[in-house]
Simulated scan of single mutants.
Amino acid sequence: MIWVELISVFVIWLTFWSLIPRDEWWIRGADFPRLQILALGLIALVLLLVWDQPWDLRREIVFTTLIAALAYQLKMVLPYTFIWKKQVKKVHKHQLKPDKQISLLVSNVLTPNDKYHLLVEQIQKHQPDLVLTLETDFIWQKALAVIEKDYPYRVPVPLDNLYGMHLYSKLELKDTEVKFILSDEIPSIHTTVILRSGQPVQLYCLHPKPPSPTEAKDSTLRDAELLMVGDQIKDLDESCIVMGDLNDVAWSRTTRLFQRISGLLDPRVGRRYINTFHADYPMFRWSLDHVFHSTDFALVHMERLPHVGSDHFPVYVVLQTGRIFEQVQDKLEQTDADEQEAQEAIQEGIQKAEKEEKLVTDEIAQDYKNGTKVPQGN
């Protein structure tokens, strides 16, 4: 049964590995599979208990340390279960006011996915006020043209680099900007949505790069982009929603810091995980697609929609705004240490972005110097 101890040590190692305050993808990746690590650890714990052998010092150390690791994993994931206090109140039937509601559908479509009709069917079924699609290129833009008659306000950003995005809205959009916060390859949409009641809501649509060996070698730019938006939101005295594929889990250090800095709430806390990725592997799923909102919003409805051929499930959320909700819902407490950590992460991201931009500029200049590229005349 030595393999039981090996599994236990593996769970312990992954747990404490995730505590290392570094941004490299091979460290930050341990943030994602906490549910899977927890399940594996619980199995190892049971097997250690029923193992019919004398308890020697090694087994006792492994057992004790495994309990500590499982306690930490539980601390991270339990807030997204029904046993935790709800961060966002539920709107009761007698409180429903359609003119103060906004319904959102977020879907990372996976660019090569050609099952366009599946997403269109979900949009036509739920008729959300806003549809945000991610990884959409010109082909997807053409395929989604069938819904345009219902969505007079549109912000198309078709790209073929897996970071295109499209925002479709039944509600009026004002002061819309497409920003490339830290990278010329990664767009974000910033706009103001006007509810049917006339109330403006600040909306931020994001899709930063994930830390992975094929995307970004570390999480520095992803973290900085999210925290820059959070830093901007904290000074707003307006209703606000942030949504998109953040390529980070709800329980990560950065996402929790973002919530404390921005003051936004997560309707999943006290309810359920809404694991959206990977759609094809039930045993390996976590929450990458998010909807955060200001304290004046409460939850009407939230669900993960059926498979649409992508590696992500779509998410459908209905929110309602009202002063009564703002009075009974509290922001997460921000500390001076949070502010310092956020500012340091933002500065690190800005410096990294400037360094990468300079490297690209230097490479282009060197290509011209070597004659591999010829400047084009006007």
Results as ranks from 00 to 15, higher is better:
residue 28 R to P: 12
residue 295 T to G: 12
residue 305 L to P: 01
residue 349 G to I: 00
residue 227 L to D: 01
residue 240 C to Q: 04
residue 198 G to F: 04
residue 337 A to F: 10
residue 99 D to M: 00
residue 314 P to T: 00
residue 117 H to F: 08
residue 79 P to D: 02
residue 309 G to M: 01
residue 331 K to Y: 07
residue 21 P to Q: 03
residue 102 I to Q: 02
residue 161 N to S: 11
residue 104 L to G: 13
residue 147 I to P: 14
residue 210 P to D: 07
residue 35 L to Y: 14
residue 11 V to H: 09
residue 105 L to Y: 06
residue 307 H to P: 00
residue 368 Y to N: 08
residue 330 D to T: 15
residue 365 A to M: 12
residue 179 K to R: 15
residue 10 F to I: 10
residue 140 W to L: 05
residue 58 R to T: 14
residue 50 V to R: 10
residue 229 V to M: 02
residue 30 A to M: 06
residue 62 V to P: 04
residue 133 T to R: 10
residue 65 T to D: 03
residue 105 L to W: 03
residue 20 I to C: 03
residue 111 T to V: 13
residue 96 L to Q: 09
residue 250 A to H: 01
residue 322 G to Y: 12
residue 82 F to Q: 12
residue 49 L to S: 14
residue 137 D to T: 09
residue 158 P to N: 12
residue 92 H to T: 05
residue 15 T to H: 09
residue 84 W to Y: 13
residue 129 D to Y: 03
residue 97 K to T: 08
residue 3 W to I: 08
residue 346 I to Y: 09
residue 324 I to S: 14
residue 231 D to K: 15
residue 158 P to W: 13
residue 159 L to E: 11
residue 98 P to R: 01
residue 186 I to R: 04
residue 177 E to V: 06
residue 211 P to V: 01
residue 270 G to V: 01
residue 241 I to C: 10
residue 196 R to S: 07
residue 198 G to T: 04
residue 49 L to C: 10
residue 109 V to G: 04
residue 146 V to C: 11
residue 235 D to H: 14
residue 280 D to V: 02
residue 102 I to L: 06
residue 169 S to V: 05
residue 122 Q to P: 06
residue 295 T to L: 06
residue 16 F to I: 12
residue 260 R to Y: 01
residue 129 D to P: 03
residue 208 P to R: 11
residue 127 Q to A: 12
residue 136 T to P: 08
residue 267 P to C: 00
residue 13 W to H: 09
residue 239 S to G: 11
residue 176 T to N: 11
residue 96 L to P: 03
residue 184 D to G: 15
residue 50 V to T: 14
residue 359 L to K: 15
residue 329 Q to N: 10
residue 271 R to I: 00
residue 335 T to N: 08
residue 233 I to K: 03
residue 66 L to D: 01
residue 212 S to N: 11
residue 2 I to H: 12
residue 17 W to D: 01
residue 308 V to Q: 05
residue 242 V to Q: 02
residue 139 I to K: 15
residue 277 F to A: 04
residue 153 Y to L: 05
residue 181 I to M: 14
residue 219 S to N: 10
residue 255 T to Y: 08
residue 284 F to C: 04
residue 150 D to A: 05
residue 279 A to F: 07
residue 182 L to V: 08
residue 297 F to P: 05
residue 109 V to L: 07
residue 58 R to H: 09
residue 118 L to A: 03
residue 76 M to Y: 04
residue 351 Q to S: 14
residue 235 D to F: 09
residue 128 P to L: 00
residue 24 E to Y: 12
residue 201 V to L: 03
residue 13 W to K: 02
residue 212 S to K: 05
residue 87 Q to I: 01
residue 66 L to A: 09
residue 105 L to H: 05
residue 165 M to W: 09
residue 151 Y to I: 07
residue 116 Y to Q: 12
residue 28 R to F: 06
residue 104 L to S: 12
residue 272 R to C: 13
residue 145 A to D: 13
residue 65 T to P: 03
residue 73 Q to A: 10
residue 149 K to Q: 15
residue 298 A to N: 06
residue 93 K to W: 07
residue 87 Q to R: 10
residue 282 P to N: 13
residue 190 H to I: 03
residue 278 H to S: 06
residue 352 K to D: 07
residue 45 L to V: 02
residue 309 G to K: 01
residue 133 T to F: 11
residue 17 W to N: 02
residue 1 M to Q: 13
residue 93 K to E: 13
